[in-house]
Computed example of a mutant assay.
Amino acid sequence: MKSLIKAAEWTLSTDTAQGAPQEPMYESECTTCAESSGATEGSRVHPEIWALKHTGSHPTHRQFRAVITSFWRVSPAEGNPLYDQEAGR
């Protein structure tokens, strides 16, 4: 049986669970041709260099979308009926 809790407190925080990326992911996307640098964790240097090189190879491709992805987790706050249950209390 599933329950719906309509009036409960929740907190939103960075996801630090095992397996979750610990740093933001950075990526550049060319808005002219949709090519992408691919995502890298923790440093935006690779996507920035990729954008410069991409323009060097395609001089009319000068606009890029910077994509920064971070990971969040929603957890029950104190006072939420699930708070004690998740904490093993």
Rank of each mutant, 00 (worst) to 15 (best):
E23P: 00
H46S: 15
S75N: 15
E29L: 02
Y83H: 12
G88P: 02
T40Q: 15
A8Y: 00
Q85T: 14
A17F: 00
F71R: 10
H54V: 02
P81V: 12
T31K: 12
W50F: 06
A87N: 14
F71P: 02
W50M: 03
Q22M: 11
E29I: 13
E29V: 10
E29Y: 08
S57N: 13
E48M: 02
G56L: 00
Q18Y: 09
L12T: 14
A39C: 14
P59A: 08
H58M: 14
L12M: 10
L82A: 11
L4T: 10
L12N: 04
E41W: 02
T31L: 07
T31G: 05
T60G: 06
R62A: 05
Y83Q: 07
S43T: 12
D15C: 15
A51L: 03
E86D: 12
A87R: 15
T14E: 14
S57M: 07
T14V: 09
P59K: 01
C33E: 03
I5L: 14
T14H: 07
T16E: 15
S70M: 10
W72R: 09
P21T: 01
E78K: 04
A20Y: 05
A17C: 08
R73M: 10
T31F: 06
P59F: 06
S13E: 11
H61W: 07
S13F: 06
H58P: 07
G42Q: 14
H46C: 05
H61C: 07
A20P: 04
P59R: 03
Q85L: 14
T60V: 04
Q22W: 00
H61V: 11
S70T: 11
R73H: 04
A39I: 12
T60E: 13
G38Y: 09
Q18R: 05
T40P: 00
F64N: 01
G79T: 01
T14L: 09
Y26I: 02
T69C: 13
R73L: 12
D15L: 03
E86V: 09
S70W: 12
R73E: 13
G56R: 00
Q63M: 10
T16S: 13
K6W: 07
R89F: 11
G79N: 03
Q22P: 01
L52N: 10
T55W: 02
L12H: 06
G42A: 08
A51D: 04
S36L: 10
T31C: 06
W50I: 12
V67F: 00
G88V: 00
H58W: 01
S43K: 04
D15I: 09
L12A: 03
T69Y: 11
E35V: 06
T55M: 04
I5H: 15
A66E: 14
E41A: 07
I68C: 08
G56I: 00
W10C: 05
S13R: 13
I5T: 09
A7Y: 13
R89V: 07
V45F: 12
A34W: 03
F64E: 02
Q18I: 13
C30W: 03
Q22F: 11
